[in-house]
């Protein structure tokens, strides 16, 4: 029984590791918030991950390469702000204006088509 379960276990671990993408490409997202000290700032999300409050107006986050969505918490759910293209060992910078309702993205560099923030 245990011998039969072993390969299944190995496959399961393999699948789990693949899902975690342990050797996957990662890049960085730099989120700058203006104004730096905002009293009532909405929570920000990268895809479904809620971000910690941005300290001193800047947060640098490690992120898996690919396109990720930045959104803000709002009444009735999340409001998408912009798409961020993350590339391996590159940093993509986006400034979020918290004065606007909902907050607004300003890309340091934008893609020619689609307007996503790129590195």
């Amino acid at each position: 029984m245990s011998m039969r379960a072993l390969p299944i276990g190995v496959v399961a671990i393999g699948l789990a590791l693949a899902a975690c993408n342990p050797t996957g490409d990662t890049g960085y997202v730099e989120i700058r918030t203006v104004p730096v000290a905002s009293q009532r700032s909405s929570s920000l999300y990268l895809d479904s991950t809620k971000l910690e409050p941005v300290q001193k107006g800047v947060a640098v986050l490690k992120q898996r390469a690919g396109t990720t969505k930045l959104s803000a918490e709002s009444i009735g759910g999340q409001v998408p702000l912009c798409d961020i293209v993350v590339r391996k060992n590159r940093i993509t910078t986006v400034t979020v204006s918290l004065l606007d309702r909902p907050p607004r993205c300003q890309c340091r560099n934008s893609a020619p088509k689609g307007g996503a923030c790129v590195s």
């Binding site: 990662t26 890049g27 960085y28 910690e52 300290q55 947060a59 640098v60 986050l61 490690k62 391996k88 060992n89 590159r90 940093i91």
Partner: peptide, 26 residues
């Protein structure tokens, strides 16, 4: 430059806000 980016990226990964060292610091 690609190799340099990898080096700096590794260092940045350690100190990024969601990196291991920063989270331990918090």
């Amino acid at each position: 430059i690609e190799e340099l980016r990898a080096l700096v990226g590794t260092a940045l990964g350690a100190v990024s806000d969601n990196g291991s060292v920063s989270q331990l610091g918090a």
